[in-house]
């Protein structure tokens, strides 16, 4: 055979230190860059809320139902609150819930996916049966049912409830990837060398599915933003906290539509959509990085 002895880059295991190397190519992807920019914008708004917010969002001292003006850029609610201030303070809750649910879900998915893949056998079968059952159940209905039993819920509880329905996707995908890696030489070698299961999972398997884990994280964030907003829109969770979802709840409850108060329900919806789109864009960016065929180029 003539083939030059080319270095087989793809089969070389990725080490822990290379986690960070994923970030740089990601930022070179236009979609991912846009997503990261939107996310950072909202992050800053959330952090600087006390400085940015013109008024206290709870104050009900202004003229009710006023359309946007110089004093109130986004108008006021029926009970006389400044909507811009509510929007700014309301950035915090969706971000906290998204990141919280993203983190919790990813932890569970990684734990279940990798252990099921590595251990195999009955353990794997039982875990996958549970995973598949949770996967098939209608997520939002389960979330609504659980939330309806809770009289009020803080951000952590909402994140937890969302996690109940969001972990199975990641667990399945990561298990499949673990099985795939298990058949690779460098993992086989580590198994033969008697490396501890724990070490194996953290030093051989996990570093080689960075992009899958990241993709799962951002997908969950998107899901959590939309789900949390839906819950609050239904009056579940805690509608007395200031958040985009609760602004929408009160807008809908006060018939904002029927009095033509578009400034009341358009901004929170746009903000939710934009934050969701940011997570979706980052996710698409990761997809394009891992599946080069999706990029536009010749073979």
């Amino acid at each position: 055979m003539i083939d030059a002895p080319s270095a087989s880059v793809s089969s070389r295991p990725r080490r822990v230190g290379q986690w960070l190397l994923v970030v740089r190519p990601l930022l070179r992807n236009a979609k991912a860059r846009t997503g990261v920019a939107i996310f950072l914008f909202f992050g800053l708004v959330a952090l600087l809320a006390p400085i940015l917010s013109p008024y206290n969002p709870h104050l009900t001292i202004f003229a009710p139902g006023a359309s946007p003006s110089a004093a109130h850029w986004l108008g006021t609610t029926q009970s006389g609150q400044d909507i811009l201030s509510q929007m700014i303070w309301g950035t915090r809750q969706p971000l906290e819930i998204a990141l919280g649910a993203g983190l919790l879900t990813t932890l569970i998915a990684v734990g279940i996916g990798i252990s099921a893949g590595l251990f195999g056998g009955v353990y794997d079968e039982i875990l996958m049966l549970i995973t598949n059952i949770f996967l098939i159940l209608p997520g939002l209905v389960v979330v609504i049912v659980i939330s309806s039993y809770l009289s009020s819920a803080n951000n952590l509880m909402i994140s937890l409830v969302i996690t109940v329905t969001s972990w199975p996707w990641g667990a399945r995908v990561l298990r499949a990837q673990t099985l795939n890696l298990k058949s690779k030489d460098f993992v086989k070698a580590a198994i033969v060398a008697g490396e501890m299961r724990f070490r194996l999972a953290f030093f051989e398997v996990l570093p080689n599915m960075t992009s899958l884990v990241a993709s799962n994280f951002f997908f969950t964030c998107l899901y959590a933003v939309v789900t949390a907003a839906s819950l609050q829109f239904l009056g579940l969770g805690n509608i007395n906290t200031v958040s985009w979802g609760s602004i929408l709840y009160w807008a809908n409850n006060s018939q904002a539509l029927m009095i033509g108060a578009w400034w009341w329900f358009v901004p929170p919806g746009l903000a939710i959509g934009l934050l969701g789109a940011a997570f979706a864009l980052i996710n698409f960016g990761i997809d394009e990085l891992t599946n080069p065929r999706l990029r536009r180029e010749a073979k």
Binding site: L248, F265, G276, A280
Partner: peptide, 23 residues
Amino acid sequence: FTFTYAFPYFWIALTFLYVVGFL
């Protein structure tokens, strides 16, 4: 689609309701 995918259903429903139904 990146955007329709990320926007909450109920908000899009509200917007349609407002524009087509109300306005």
